[in-house]
Structures are given as structure tokens and as C-alpha cells.
Design a protein around this nucleic acid. Structure first.
Lengths: 200, 200
DNA sequence: GTCTATAGCTAGATAGAC
DNA sequence: GTCTATCTAGCTATAGAC
């Protein structure tokens, strides 16, 4: 319990408050005042800890990045096929309308904003590269173990990532009830037809 | 040349001005004042033609929708494989940094905003359904002609659309130089391995 | 570290003249 | 239909007290 924990606590509360504001109001309606209200403090305190709103958002993205990194490691063991299916399920089976799903909408908004904001882009690119490395690693493991065919791990991982991301985004932003079920079916067919080694 | 053409002209100019502002500044920085400046008129005139900013954006989305519909019909004839490849190329070979590419960034921003705006969502869902129907139609034609295997046209079209959209978006919003080339390679492998009928 | 108060700006929208 | 002028509201950021 060193003396600098109070500042750390406040920052942690501001990150959690930012998460909730993003989930409830979206990135376009994220204001330092709303974050302060959610964290039950004054707006000027937000600016004391984060000079600008952009600093707050960048810190928040890094905070999310760390949390997701922890999650990725829970993908755990098992055959490459099993880990791959767990990855796919994790993307496609997000509950319909809880806070996590609502935050994912904000994450889509933040991803779009990254195009015009170098600092957002840096964090989100690192985020994407980690996902890419994880999934490509799974494919590579599958090839080495003889489970998968001799495909390009990088291109295969990218193709699957983008398809899944497109499906999730369509599900979140459009009225497309078929987005996730049809994508799931197509991914299954892809895994069976292109990835799994034939055993006869 | 009926007497109501001047109003129509102004509206057309406002749509074109909105396009340019979106391409140059992005959706987050779209203001009625900037549209007015770009259209060389007063800000209040924008509000005369479109009561609210939302009305302007919805009208703009419908305007873009019409234009893209015309484009889709130029996909034209040829074998199903040829039309499919033309579709894929059209998505992946957008020039790097012209106005059209910059507008696509804004389109990603608008797509994200659709999650929290019913009216945007309605237009963009119609947009997506048209793309889906076109691509699924190509796959269906290919199956009927014996060019493609007996896949699900809807699920296949969706899978390809989402993968392509994910690649384009990653290319526009992240520092991922491999997004488009690796996706192109993976799509080629998918078309050859899953779609094209085997001839022996 | 945390607060209240406010400066300073910019946005969307409206009033009213022409 | 188009303009100028302005109202009102909301935002980021800072000043200064505690």
C-alpha cells in the first residue's frame, strides 16, 4: 500500500468509467464530463490525470489491449483444430445485448476513428498484430502436427480474421440476422474443405 | 427545364459537397458549415433544404446508394468466375490515396455510426442486401452453369463479402500493408479450392 | 489530488430581411 | 431560395482555492 496507490486507483476507475460510457453512449458521445459523472468525480480531475481527451482515449485503448492480451492466453491447449474452433466461437457467440456487446459497438467506432488518428491506429495495429500472430500460430501448429494442410498460415489467419470481423461488425451495425449463422456455416465449410488434412 | 430545377441543382451540389467534406475531413468533422463552404452557399441554406444534419446525411447515403447501384450493373457479363473475380478486384484494387479512397474511410465511419442510428442503418442495410444479392446471384449462376460446386450461394457470398470488407477496412484504418495482398491470395485459394468445379 | 467556476470555442438550428 | 445575424447548448481545457 504505497502512497501512490490512490492515483492509480483513480486512473483505474476512469478507465472503467470510460468503458461504461463507451458502451452506453458510444464514442461519438464520449465526453470528459460523462466519464467524470460515471466515475463520480469532477470533470477537471479527468484532465488532471489525462491532459487531453485524446490522452484519455489512448490510455483506454492500451488498457483494453492489456486485458485482451490476458484473454488470448486463455485460448489454451488442445489440438490446433480445437483452438481454432474456440477462436471462431469466441468471436461469433458474443451474447446479444449485454454490456460487452454494447462496448463492441464502440470498439467498431474507435476502429473507424483510427484511420484519422495516428495514436489510436498505433495501439489498434498492435492489437491486430497480436490477434494475427496468435491465429497464424494456431494454423502453423496444425500444419506441423499434420492436422492441417500446407496452407499459408499468415494468409489463412488473415482471411479468417477479416471474415469473422466483418460478420461481427455487420451483426452489430446492420439489420442482418444471417450475418453470424451463415458466416459460421461458411467458416465450418472452409475449415473442413481447405484446412483439415484428408484422412482416408 | 421546369421551374423546380434550381432546387434540384442546389440539392445535387449539396450532395457533392457532402461527399468532398467527408473525404477530406471525415464524418466526425462533417458540419453543415463546412458543407455550405464547399457548396459555396450559406449554412442556413443547408438547413433550408435539409431540416437537420441527420436529414442531410440520410439523403446523402441514399444518393450514394443510387450511384453504387448503377456501378453494380456494370459488373456485366462473362462467366460466373469472371464476374466474381471482377467483384473481388474492384474491392481490393482501389487506388491508394485518391479522393475515392479517402471517401471510403468516411464510409467506414458512417457504417460504424449506423449501429446507433436507425435511419443510417436502414439505408446501409439495403445497400448491403443489394451487394449480397448480386454476389449470391453470381455464385448461383456459377452453380447452375456447372462452373461452381454445390455450395450455399448465400453463405458463400457472405463469407467472401465480409472477408473483403474486413481487408479493405484494415487497409484503410490500420498500418497493415499485408491486408490486401494476403487476402487476395487467400481468396484465390478459396475460389480454386472450394468453388471451382474440378475438371479431370 | 480534488474541487468549483469559468473562459473560449464551435456546433446545430432559427429569425427575419430580401 | 438565399442571405446575414444570432440564439442556445455543449464541449475541452484552464485558473485558482482547498
Amino acid at each position: 500500500m504505497s502512497s501512490d496507490t490512490s492515483g492509480t486507483d483513480t486512473r483505474e476507475q476512469l478507465m472503467a468509467a470510460t468503458y461504461r460510457v463507451l458502451a452506453e453512449r458510444g464514442f461519438a458521445n464520449l465526453t470528459t464530463q460523462r466519464v467524470a459523472d460515471e466515475a463520480d468525480c469532477s470533470q477537471s480531475l479527468v484532465h488532471y490525470h489525462y491532459d487531453t481527451k485524446d490522452d484519455l482515449v489512448v490510455a483506454f485503448l492500451e488498457w483494453v489491449h492489456e486485458q485482451e492480451t490476458e484473454w488470448l492466453e486463455t485460448l489454451g491447449d488442445g489440438s490446433a483444430e480445437r483452438r481454432l474452433r474456440r477462436f471462431v466461437d469466441a468471436q461469433l457467440s458474443i451474447p446479444a445485448d449485454d454490456e460487452h456487446a454494447r462496448f463492441n459497438v464502440a470498439f467498431v467506432e474507435l476502429a473507424a476513428a483510427a484511420a484519422r488518428n495516428e495514436r489510436y491506429r498505433a495501439v489498434l495495429t498492435a492489437f491486430s498484430e497480436r490477434l494475427q500472430a496468435t491465429l497464424a500460430g494456431i494454423v502453423r501448429d496444425g500444419i506441423e502436427a499434420g492436422e492441417f494442410r500446407q496452407v499459408s498460415p499468415e494468409a489463412t489467419a488473415r482471411f479468417l480474421r477479416y471474415a469473422l470481423q466483418g460478420a461481427v461488425q455487420a451483426d452489430l451495425t446492420l439489420d442482418e440476422p444471417e450475418a453470424k449463422p451463415q458466416t459460421e456455416a461458411a467458416v465450418d465449410a472452409y475449415v473442413e474443405g481447405m484446412l483439415l488434412a484428408e484422412r482416408d
